[in-house]
Structure formats: C-alpha cells, structure tokens
Simulated assay, not measured.
Amino acid sequence: MNVPSLPIRPAPVSRWLGLMLTLSMSSLPLATHAQPAVGISFSGQPTSFLVQSEPYAVQGFGRARLGMSMDEVKASIAADYPQVISTREDDNAVDRTRSMAILVPALAPAPGRATISFVFGHRSQRLAAINIAWVLEGEPSAAQREALLAAGTQLTSGLVGYQWDVGSFIRGHVPAPGTLIMFSGRDAQGGGAEVRLDGVALDMEQRIASAGAPARPAVKVPAPGGAARLRYSLVSQVERPDVYRLVPGSF
C-alpha cells in the first residue's frame, strides 16, 4: 500500500508531553513550544500496513491503561515486566504530578534497555501519560541507528492504519536538525500518541526556509554525533493536561 500524503500542520502532542515527563532517568527533552519546521522526511515511514476499519483510540501500553490508579499500574508492571532492573518515583513541584519510571533489560521492538515512565495527574491521581524510551548511549554505529529507525517504523505502522481525522496527525515532521517525529496524532477523545527519533540519518524530501518557499531537491542528512533515542509516548489529554494551575488572582 502506498504511503498517504503527509499533512504539514503539527499536532500539539509534544508540547503537552513536555509538561508531564519529569524523570531525568527516562524523559527526553520534548519541546514545550511550537517550533518552525525545517523539513519533511519519509525516512522510516512504513510502506505497507494493516488498514483498520475504526478510529484509533489512545488507551495504554501493555496492561497499563490510562486512567488507572498507581496501585493498578504497579500490578500491571509486576505482570508485564518480571525482570525490572530499577524503579524510581518522583514528584514534580511545578505541575504537582507524580511519576514512576522503571528500567527493563529489553523491550520490543527496539534493541537494548528501555525506560518506561508513568505520569499520574494532579487532580485525578490517575495515569495520565506513558513514555517509553530506548536510548543508545555514546556513539552508536550506523547499524545500531538503523535498528532504532526500524523499530520506529514498526511502532508507526501500528498507528497509521487506523482512521484519523484530517488535520489531527502528522508524519515525517522534522522540527529541528537531528529530530524526526515519525508520527504524532490526536484521537477523537483528545488523547495523543507520538513516535519520535533523535540521532539518526534522514532523507529530507523538502526543506522549508520560510512560508511559501519552494521545495528543494531531496538530500541525505547524516546522523549527528552522540546518542540516539527512540521515544513512544501516549497521553490521555493533549489539550487539557491534568496538571496544577494557579487560580487567576491568587497572588
């Protein structure tokens, strides 16, 4: 099946997640403000996928379901990941959310260790976001970076076959050099899903210098130096995150 055309308008999943993912051992620096696009890339986009007859609904990862209590999430972790290397809990003093992260020795589809972060909302105390991160430290080889890209393709193929409203998702968005949002979408209930890569080589289909600028020829952009990262993120509400907010006029 041919790959559908790429919508250009970015969904705001990253901006919401940047508020919620607080553990330094697991979180990647998601942008908290809109950034101008530097290009569009088909790198890693699935060329075939199973077409679903229903809209996608963001629900959770493994046995962990968005909306669960912390005790329920801990029970799901015990069932899904019997070989947890380490666990960490933390509080965000600004958002007043509670976070828990686990490090596991392996997690498909990407190679190596993975960190899974669970973020619980300020008011509800229920699971509001899940962030899975695979990080290749140091200077990964080209083959290792390609394996990470292939894993991102696999995750993306599990999303693109569903029905998404026009304008509710993007594919192949490059918000900054060395960063590729393979897929970012918002479901009908306001939940968000995102697959994001940092530190891999890209085939740039076009570069956007300014609004209305003509597309330029495709160019190969080599991987930047340093670590490579793949992140798969799920949130319950993109537009209305369950975080602490000051009451107007309270100070």
Rank of each mutant, 00 (worst) to 15 (best):
G44W: 04
S48P: 01
F49M: 04
L50R: 07
V51F: 04
E54I: 11
P55E: 00
Y56V: 12
Q59T: 15
Q59S: 15
F61Q: 14
G62C: 14
R63W: 02
A64T: 00
A64L: 03
S69H: 00
M70P: 02
D71F: 00
V73T: 05
V73E: 00
K74S: 11
A75G: 13
S76N: 03
A78E: 15
A79N: 09
P82H: 06
I85H: 03
T87H: 05
R88Y: 04
R88V: 15
R88M: 13
R88I: 14
D90F: 14
D90P: 01
D95Q: 09
R96M: 12
T97N: 11
A101N: 04
I102E: 02
V104A: 09
A106D: 08
A106T: 12
A108P: 03
S117T: 10
F118I: 07
G121S: 06
Q125T: 05
R126P: 01
L127D: 06
L127M: 06
A128W: 03
A129V: 15
I130W: 09
I130P: 07
N131C: 13
I132M: 09
A133D: 00
V135K: 13
V135P: 00
V135I: 14
L136C: 03
E137S: 15
S141R: 07
S141N: 11
A143H: 08
Q144H: 08
Q144C: 07
L149R: 07
A151P: 07
A151K: 02
T153E: 02
T153M: 05
Q154D: 10
Q154I: 06
T156H: 10
S157T: 13
S157P: 07
V160F: 04
